[in-house]
C-alpha cells in the first residue's frame, strides 16, 4: 500500500561523493532551484535533508558526501533499490530576479546545488559566472554541467592540481575586481560560506548562502533547524534554507551542527561493523 521511491541510477562521482537519481514525481513536478528533500531510507532510518540538484521528468537527483551512517548507507544502494520516504520539495526556492551578473560559488559537495540555480538565474536574464572550488582535482564535481549552465566557469583547487591554486573566495574577489557583480550565491561547508561571504560584505553585494543545520521534520514543526539571522531565530527548513549571508550567525550554526558528533560516530561504527559490503544496512537489527 505504501509508495516506495525507486532508485533509477546510483553512481560515484568522486571520492566520497555520490549521486542518486530517484523516482519521486510529487517532488520532481514542483521542485525549484534552492529547495531540498528529506530522505528516510527505511523504517529505522533517520530523516536527512539533501538538496535537489537536478530534475528530469518524474525523477530528482541528489548528490551527497558520505560522512555518516545514512549517507554511507545511501551510497551503497543501487538502481532498483527503494527509499521508503521522500518528502518535498521543502524550503523556499532561491530568490532569483534579473539583477545583472550573478556569481555562484560552490565549495566541495555544495557545488551540487548550483546547476539548477545557474539555469534559473540565466533564464531570468542574468549573466552567470560559476566558481567551483575543491580540495584537489579528483574531488571536483559537475564541471561539464556547470560549464554548460553558466556563461563562464572558473575552477580553484586548494592544492593547485587543477585551475587556480587557492580558494574559491580568491576567485570571487578577482571577479569582483574585474567586473560589476550584482548578486552572489555561496554554497558549501559552513566555514567556507562564512569566510567566503566576507568577500562581498563591504561591497554590499546581495549574497545568499544555503544553511545546513540538523533537521528532523523539515516542515517547521520542531525547531531543530533554528538559525540566527539578523539577530532573530528563524527555521531554516521553512524560512530558508537560503538566507542573506551577511546576516547569518555562523558560529551558532557550526556549534549546533556538531551537537550529535559522539552519537553519529557510534552509529557509523555500528553500521560499518554490521553491514555486509554488498547491501548496506539490511543486517542491522
Amino acid at each position: 500500500m505504501k509508495i516506495l521511491y525507486r532508485i533509477e541510477k546510483s553512481q560515484s562521482l568522486a571520492d566520497k561523493v555520490h549521486q542518486l537519481w530517484v523516482n519521486a514525481p510529487h517532488v520532481a513536478h514542483h521542485a525549484q532551484a534552492g529547495q531540498f528533500v528529506i530522505f528516510r531510507i527505511d523504517e529505522k532510518g533517520e530523516r536527512i535533508p539533501l538538496t535537489i540538484s537536478a530534475v528530469d521528468g518524474d525523477s530528482i537527483r541528489v548528490i551527497f558526501m558520505t560522512i555518516g551512517k545514512t549517507t554511507t548507507h545511501l551510497a551503497r544502494l543501487s538502481a532498483g533499490d527503494h527509499i521508503q520516504d521522500i518528502a518535498g520539495p521543502l524550503g523556499k526556492p532561491s530568490e532569483i530576479v534579473k539583477s545583472g551578473t550573478c556569481v555562484l560559488v560552490g565549495g566541495g559537495v555544495g557545488t551540487a546545488s548550483l546547476p539548477i540555480i545557474a539555469r534559473a538565474a540565466k533564464s531570468a536574464g542574468n549573466r552567470v559566472i560559476g566558481i567551483v572550488g575543491a580540495r584537489n582535482a579528483d574531488l571536483l564535481i559537475l564541471e561539464d554541467e556547470m560549464r554548460d549552465a553558466c556563461d563562464e566557469l572558473q575552477i580553484s583547487t586548494d592544492d593547485g592540481s587543477k585551475g587556480f591554486h587557492g580558494f574559491a573566495a580568491d576567485l570571487l574577489k578577482q571577479t569582483m575586481a574585474r567586473e560589476k557583480v550584482d548578486c552572489v550565491w555561496i554554497i558549501g561547508p559552513a566555514i567556507m560560506m562564512k569566510v567566503t561571504a566576507e568577500a562581498t560584505r563591504t561591497a554590499g553585494i546581495k549574497t545568499y548562502v544555503s544553511l545546513n543545520p540538523i533537521m528532523v521534520d523539515g516542515t517547521g514543526m520542531c525547531g531543530s533547524c533554528r538559525v540566527i539571522v539578523d539577530g532573530e531565530t528563524r527555521f531554516a527548513c521553512v524560512d530558508g534554507p537560503e538566507f542573506d549571508a551577511h546576516k547569518v550567525d555562523f558560529n551558532t550554526l557550526m556549534q549546533r551542527i556538531r551537537m550529535y558528533q559522539p552519537e553519529e560516530k557510534e552509529s557509523l561504527e555500528k553500521f560499518q561493523s554490521h553491514a555486509c559490503a554488498c547491501k548496506g544496512g539490511e543486517h542491522h537489527a
Binding site: K44, G45, E46, R47, K69, T70, V216, D217, M221, C222, G223, S224, Y260, E263, E264, E266, S267, K270, H284, A285
Partner: peptide, 24 residues
C-alpha cells in the same frame, strides 16, 4: 529542545532505541 523536537525524536523516530534506530 522544543518539546516538539524532543518528543518527535523519541515518539516518531524512536530515538529511545538509538542506535538500533538511527535518530539520536
Amino acid at each position: 529542545y522544543s518539546a516538539n523536537e524532543f518528543l518527535t525524536r523519541v515518539n516518531l523516530m524512536h530515538a529511545d532505541r538509538f542506535p538500533v534506530y538511527d535518530t539520536p
